[in-house]
Design a protein around this nucleic acid. Structure first.
Lengths: 188, 188
DNA sequence: TGTCATAACGAACATTCGTTAGGCAAATAT
DNA sequence: ATATTTGCCTAACGAATGTTCGTTATGACA
């Protein structure tokens, strides 16, 4: 990937984040890149490539992250902590792309969307395994695994909606807060 | 609101849910309503009215819900339980509209979007008050209120992404699961 | 019977969409 | 020095966009 292509991708992600993929035109992207619309096609094959690259490169990061966690750590609580940490880290260091990844994957072509969903399920399964491990090891309550994982993931995913790099909490603090919350709950 | 107008609104919400507001054309809506595109304008003022009505009618439901909860119940744990129950109930009985409400409010006009965000913050504040009450009453841990509420809301909001009316869990069961999870956490 | 409202129609509007074709100057490679 | 590639340009393409227009069939009500 050329430097210029990466630049264009980054510009596109920023616009997609603000207005959504569908509501962002190639002309918008061109203007933001200080270039005529047609010039974009010297670098990319089309608009969907920008979405496709964003979605799949993010999916790859998440899947590699959970694979690594499952490789390195043994204890389920440790795994969970690291999985949360990794997830938040990926979101925070690729915020624009993460938002696009989360909101706009629906606009992939049917083929690519199907491929994307496979990866998404793969990641969810990785998380489920950690929760199940915790139960098997006697560390976690015997919760509904599917439901608990979904709830955990929802909290992780929603972070992009309010995370602010200049905000009060660092990614590490967010991860720790979330881990503690998911582990111990509200009740005193 | 005429019956026919409601019908069109419902059709539009179903299409918005599947393809998003921006990627759904008036011609799509017309086709689904078995009508020529121009005929839609006998019932509505324009495309945005469909989005506007959806977003604000849902916001109203949520705000009324939390106001009622705060009126009727006293104990924070009870309030939280009922707030979760009400939230899930609203989602489940207005699933299409809820999805549009959640994903597409960004495409409201600037004025309306600002008004919408005010309502959204109002609802979040209502939730925060409940959590804060719980802490003050000594029922809840002294968590970061803002963070905890955001996490709770994220779990509530994400439900629309996987809820299936024909699925394993009823809305009441989902609410109960979620309440228990948020209250007691994973740890044994 | 005459008047009005409703809900639909076909045709057209200006605009925007993603994309392609062809060319041209500067940088790079041979 | 010459050839090739790169990065951008202007111009244009066909298709799709939300919406407006004037009209018409239907039926309720005076």
């Amino acid at each position: 990937m050329t430097e210029r292509k990466l630049e264009i991708l980054s510009i596109a992600q920023s616009l997609f984040k603000d207005n959504g993929y569908t509501a962002t035109s190639m002309r918008d992207i061109a203007k933001a890149a200080n270039v005529e619309p047609a010039s974009l096609y010297s670098h990319i094959n089309g608009k969907e490539e920008l979405l496709d690259t964003t979605c799949f490169s993010m999916a790859e990061k998440f899947i590699n992250g959970i694979a690594e966690v499952n490789d390195i750590y043994f204890d389920a609580a440790q795994k969970l902590k690291m999985a949360v940490d990794t997830h938040v880290g990926i979101l925070a260091t690729n915020l624009n792309a993460a938002i696009v990844f989360q909101r706009d994957w629906r606009h992939l072509s049917d083929d690519r969307k199907a491929a994307f969903i496979v990866l998404r399920n793969q990641y969810e399964e990785g998380m489920r395994v950690i929760v199940q491990n915790g139960i098997d090891e006697g560390l976690f309550n015997e919760v509904d695994v599917k439901f608990a994982t979904l709830t955990l993931l929802s909290s992780l995913n929603w972070i992009v909606e309010w995370y602010d790099a200049e905000g009060r909490l660092t990614p590490a603090e967010i991860a720790e807060n979330l881990y503690n919350f998911v582990l111990t709950g509200l009740k005193k």
